[in-house]
Design a protein around this nucleic acid. Structure first.
Lengths: 212, 212
DNA sequence: CGTTTAGTTGATTTTGCTCAACTGCCGTGG
DNA sequence: CCACGGCAGTTGAGCAAAATCAACTAAACG
């Protein structure tokens, strides 16, 4: 992306600061903004009327949100931890994108990647068992989290069990039981409830890939 | 998209004809081509080593395939019925896209839509019951199929039960049982195994939205 | 027609869910 | 400093939805 584009993007931006748990967008609301995350992390999810929740993704610094065309947001988004985002009015943002090929190119590139990730998640949700889902999750997580710890094999779990469950299409109890089973098998260890060490990456990988 | 772009696109294209069941791409193969479907329909899917299959989408005339960046295909694709596609070498195609803002804009627009659809499918796979999945499927299908019948309430099922099952994260037997249950409730009727009439769109919609 | 393949139906099993109790971890305040 | 309360997480028992296994029936096709 050219520097001139960044400057023009910057002139459109407003910075928004979010406390942990703050709601950024609600599914069905009119959608005047596009967001870019500056720091922290968000959960993006959809709800059914009875409260069942599917988290479609976790977003971290650098990620965009709300690019999809349409008058209304088709998802809700909340801050997981204290988070800052840049907010752009949709009209001027879109005008800028159309006038800037490199910017549009970057968005296409990112959106394609997100789509590929979404297809992996469909395989996970549609066809993998509980342990396979957890294994896939634990392997993918560090790759997305820019605040990942440096120690190899160390995975930070910034989200609660309920969020992991709603991301993987499971219940809290199943997530807990599967983690316990993985500990018993020596695949992982957990120094604390939000810090996890992969002891046997080979076994974790085998589970994630559904190898029997 | 400007006419000049279409002409330049056309000069890059090779037409490929596929018999029903023919394989267009195989997950993991090197990916030299981007495709655009001219007629017919494709199933796009991912496999686990033991044969479990998740169909991530059905594609129809006009749809693009293989846009995702990367050396290798990350999905397999097969023709459901006799199908023709336009094939573009990736290098020249990408060069053209970068030089044509309207073309890139269209691709971003389409990819964003596909991503939104993928997120709906995650909600379906992660949180909906079997009958809710079928209801959602029956409501969405006509919107995607350009060869849809004109009669309102009439849904063409060009794919087999096994494909519906692998798209919805269910088994063939469950799909069959749920359709039977829907018939018993008077929500649908089926003049033939591949033609379905929605008798109670209201009830179907209520089920699809997970209303209790 | 007879054969093959797709689809349906039934009996049984399994995986993960539900409901419920219990444990550990903090934070607050007496 | 410890007692209490609240929340997150774990564990257990029983249950239910969908999977599996197994006939059986209906279309499709030569």
């Amino acid at each position: 992306m050219a520097d001139a584009d960044l400057v023009r993007l910057g002139s459109l931006a407003e910075v928004v600061t979010l406390k942990a748990g703050a709601v950024l967008t609600r599914e069905g609301d009119v959608a005047p903004y596009v967001f870019n995350i500056t720091s922290g992390s968000l959960r993006v999810y959809k709800l059914l009327p009875d409260g069942r929740r599917q988290i479609t993704g976790f977003l971290f610094a650098g990620d965009f949100l709300g690019l999809a065309i349409g008058e209304h947001y088709v998802f809700s988004a909340e801050a997981i931890e204290p988070t800052t985002v840049c907010r752009f009015r949709k009209g001027p943002f879109r005008a800028l994108v159309e006038s800037s090929s490199p910017l549009e190119h970057m968005l296409l590139h990112r959106t394609s990647h997100e789509l590929a990730a979404a297809q992996n998640q469909m395989l996970l949700l549609g066809r993998k068992t509980a342990i396979e889902r957890l294994a896939s999750f634990l392997l993918d997580l560090p790759g997305h989290d820019p605040a990942r710890p440096t120690a190899p094999g160390h995975v930070r779990l910034p989200m609660k069990r309920g969020e992991i469950a709603d991301y993987l299409g499971l219940t809290i109890e199943t997530v807990s039981r599967v983690l316990t089973r993985m500990k018993a098998k020596g695949i992982i260890s957990m120094p604390s409830q939000s810090d996890l060490i992969v002891e046997r990456p080979d076994l974790l990988r085998a589970h994630a890939d559904g190898e029997v």
